[in-house]
């Protein structure tokens, strides 16, 4: 199931709705990269609130989304990592190094607005 991508001014919001397959995640990375160019977006928010597991592949792909968007000129904020998911990621030894995170969508948007040039 592809992830819907909404546009809020110059920010793209990808709201992950359900457990994603690896293919869906890779598709999201490619879609976002393309849409950053098409909509001249400055920011990307990946909302993972609905995800109940972020394993090593998902974490690596989310990091890939952020790095790809950055090379395309947009900043990414990952929002909504649930407490249990965060704990499991730490236990697993996973980090989102170099990727901005925020509590929820509002905080993510605030972060992008605050740091906008």
């Amino acid at each position: 199931m592809p992830v819907p991508i909404l546009r809020l001014d110059d920010v793209l919001v990808a709201s992950i709705q359900a457990a994603l397959t690896d293919q869906d995640l890779l598709q999201l990375r490619d879609d976002l990269s393309e849409k950053v160019g098409r909509f001249r977006a400055r920011g990307v928010i990946v909302d993972v609130t609905a995800l109940d597991v972020l394993d090593s592949f998902a974490t690596r792909t989310v990091r890939g989304i952020a790095y790809t968007a950055r090379l395309r000129g947009a900043r990414t904020v990952v929002v909504g990592i649930q407490p249990d998911v965060a704990f499991a990621m730490v236990q697993l030894g996973l980090t989102l190094e170099g990727v901005a995170t925020a509590l929820d969508l509002d905080e993510g948007l605030a972060l992008l607005r605050r740091d906008a040039p």
């Binding site: 597991v53 394993d55 249990d84 998911v85 704990f87 499991a88 990621m89 236990q91 697993l92």
Partner: peptide, 13 residues
């Protein structure tokens, strides 16, 4: 719920 998430994540790996 936390333990469920740890188990689900390990299964995923």
């Amino acid at each position: 719920k936390t333990e469920q998430t740890l188990i689900a994540t390990a299964i995923s790996e």
